[in-house]
Design a protein around this nucleic acid. Structure first.
Lengths: 236, 236
DNA sequence: ATCGTTGATTTGTGATCACACATTACGGCA
DNA sequence: TGCCGTAATGTGTGATCACAAATCAACGAT
């Protein structure tokens, strides 16, 4: 009898506000350097200041937002140096997760990854850019889940949140080429996972991350806020 | 004229409360599983509830504290699985930082590290356990600073905060043997950095982390809260 | 004795307000 | 026109309060 009941929503208002803002950041609805005000967001979301305030501070703690010395809250913006540092960190950490995932390889996992990847390809050809973004995220995190390291996934999630606005930029501009080349690396990752070759899997995944990042700087996408000094292009 | 003035403290109350709680966690003044109440801490610190509330939520966002489904806030406690996962993550990330630090090696850095390490040894022999803890942290972070990756340091800092209570346990018990063996690995790390051998440096640092963690489980230190189910001892 | 119930107390959440500081706009003076 | 005080507005911080949910204690029934 009781098993027919689905759990009711017991989340707090603060939590829902947090998720909403997080989602908006992921989708690049805010651009780097934007100032977010408590009262402004509270009015927009139809709540009081309190929940917004706590959600914002949580995002600041997660480094998705930054607080200026004058205590106003802005969307984090990168210098090229910080951007490439983050990419290097992602390559190391997500490479680690991939390596462990390969050890836990199973036919079901491989099949699942292949399906996601091919659905990505059709989404790219069809021009459904939002599906492409979603598929890319699903592909990566399906691997990371397979590593069975919950704390590591939390960390990776946080890193993605920081780079989130970037992919959103590509989405807005209608670009999808970096993802198309990405699917080729994805296939190589899957093949390595299939053979339980952790090193190869990690190596190809790192190339995927690197190639995508490289594409952004090659196209000089406006991801570096003008708030920072010296937005110089650097080679890896 | 104005250069004679030193800057005044412009930090917020919330920030000072946060730092105080963080420090307490580092020193292991709270034990795993303890419940922290807003009003209780506010009374103890002589502030209102507001700053405490925000400091606690920041620590929750950083995973130093956890929030139960009933929304009470506790000091995070580990299962052995989560503990070893964290150690593995630390080995990878801090290994990465060490590798890059070796590339930025300089005679000054090597000299500095040797001094810290030898001061650690005398602190151990003298029984100044607090200095030992401090020296160990200084040794590691001097290396990580040399990597010149600010975001990476933030991440490492957070990982140390999560494992913080543990070293505090050793401090309370008056143990210092894990640190004595640690200084031997430290010396090997320094030698590798001196030769700019990133791989060797990272490898020895990983062993240092692993050996310290191993010591804790070998001595069955009570680091795993009874709040969790199945606190089983596992081998790496 | 064990379990469920009831009541008292504690606790987190969210709203509202006062205040100090930051930011902006305006206006006068060089 | 350019610069600098000054007023006006906006904004984060911290305090306080109301409320619902959780926790704990005492009590009674089985």
């Amino acid at each position: 009898m009781t098993d027919k009941l689905s759990p009711v929503d017991v989340s707090t208002l603060q939590e829902r506000v947090y998720l909403k803002l997080r989602e908006a950041l992921y989708q690049g609805k805010f651009s780097a350097g934007d100032t977010l005000t408590i009262r402004g967001l509270a009015a927009a979301l139809g709540t009081s200041a309190m929940p917004v305030r706590e959600a914002l501070q949580r995002l600041v703690a997660e480094k998705a937002l930054v607080q200026t010395p004058s205590r106003s809250i802005r969307v984090a913006s990168f210098t090229p140096e910080l951007f490439w540092e983050l990419i290097r960190i992602r390559m190391t950490i997500e490479g680690m997760a991939t390596q462990r995932a390969a050890l836990n390889s199973s036919p079901a996992l491989v099949k699942n990854l292949r399906e996601i990847n091919s659905s990505m390809i059709t989404a790219i050809k069809g021009g459904f850019t939002e599906d492409v973004l979603d598929g890319n995220k699903r592909f990566h995190f399906t691997i990371y889940e397979a590593a069975e390291m919950p704390q590591l996934i939390e960390i990776i999630n946080n890193l993605w949140l920081r780079t989130g606005p970037y992919l959103g930029v590509a989405y807005r501009m209608g670009y999808s080429d970096p993802f198309l080349t990405g699917t080729r690396f994805h296939e190589r990752v899957v093949q390595a996972i299939e053979r339980r070759d952790g090193r190869k899997a990690a190596a190809n995944l790192k190339v995927d991350i690197w190639a995508t990042a490289k594409w952004f700087t090659r196209h000089r996408i406006a991801i570096f806020g003008e708030y920072e000094e010296k937005p110089i292009q650097i080679a890896l």
